[in-house]
Nucleic acid binder design. Structure first.
Lengths: 136, 136
DNA sequence: AGGCAATTGTGTAATCCTTACAATTTTTAT
DNA sequence: ATAAAAATTGTAAGGATTACACAATTGCCT
C-alpha cells in the first residue's frame, strides 16, 4: 500500500484511501474492469463508497496517464493499469478480455503507414477464442 | 439508388426508402458517422424521420454484416460501410477518423500470437496527427 | 497536536443516450 | 382492392454518466 501511495504522489495525485483502493484494484486484478465491476467489489469493504467517486477517480487517473481506457466494443468502457505496450484479446465465447503479448515486436508498423501521418499511439485488439474456450 | 436497393435485397433486407437513404449516407460519406450525424443530416430531407428508425436500421445492418461498428473511443459508436480490411486513424487534433491502408500487409500477425488463441478478427487503430494538422 | 483552508468524497438530481412498445403508415401478396 | 405483414414513428421508460451542493477528510502552518 505504501508503494501505491508513493506512485500516486509521483503523479501529483493525493493518495486518499479511496484512490489507493481503486488503483490497487485496477492494477492487481488485471480484469479490465468496468466502473460497475470496481464498484461492486469495493463497496463490500468500503460501505460508504459512492459510484461518483469511482467516476471521478478514474477520470483523474486517465488524465494523469496512469490508467488507460480500453474501448473494445459493446460501448462499455473498461480500464487498464498496465503501461507496458500490449494488445488486447477478447474471447467471443466467454467474453473475457485478456492482455496478450506478441512473440515478436511489430515496430515496423511506422514504415507501413502512408506518408504524412504522425503516429502517437497504436492500438491493436483481436477477437476470437481463448485457449480455454477453444478446448471446450 | 437501384444498386443500393439490389445490394440490400441480396442481404435479405427489404429496401425501404429510409433504409436506402441511411445506407447511402453511411456508404458515400465515409465519415464514420455517429447515429446523430446520420440523423442530423437526413432529417433535413426526410422530415418525418425518427431517430428510432436510425437505431433499428443500423442494428439491422450490423447484424447483416453490411456495416461495421467502429468503437475507437469516447464511447461513441460510429459506423462504417467499408468491408475491405483497413485500419482506422484518428487525428488527436481535428478529431477526424479516417480509413488508411497500410503499404504492406501485416498478415504475419497470426504467427506472432501466443499458442492456443484462435484469431477471428483483427482491429487496429492509430492515433496521431493527420497530414493537414501536422502542417498547420 | 490543533485549527484552518483546500481538497476529496458522497448522495441526489439532472442529463443524455439508447431501447421498448403501441399505434400508424407503408409495403407486399393475393 | 383488400388483407396481412412489415416498417416507421413518437412517446415513454430505462440505464449510464455527470453536475452540483454539502459533508468529510486531508495537508499545512503554527
Amino acid at each position: 500500500m505504501k508503494s501505491i501511495s508513493d506512485f500516486l504522489k509521483n503523479h501529483d495525485i493525493r493518495p486518499s484511501y479511496q484512490r489507493m483502493r481503486i488503483f490497487e484494484y485496477v492494477q492487481s486484478k488485471r480484469n479490465h474492469p468496468t466502473i460497475d465491476m470496481i464498484y461492486s467489489s469495493l463497496i463490500q469493504e468500503i460501505p460508504s463508497l459512492s459510484k461518483t467517486t469511482i467516476y471521478n477517480t478514474l477520470r483523474l487517473f486517465v488524465s494523469a496517464g496512469i490508467v488507460k481506457p480500453v474501448t473494445i466494443e459493446d460501448h462499455e468502457i473498461r480500464y487498464d493499469a498496465d503501461t507496458v505496450p500490449h494488445i488486447h484479446f477478447k474471447c467471443i465465447k466467454c467474453g473475457k478480455i485478456e492482455d496478450i503479448y506478441l512473440k515478436n515486436d511489430w515496430n515496423d508498423l511506422a514504415s507501413m503507414v502512408p506518408e504524412g501521418y504522425v503516429v502517437n499511439e497504436e492500438h491493436l485488439y483481436l477477437r476470437g477464442l481463448c485457449p480455454d474456450c477453444r478446448d471446450a
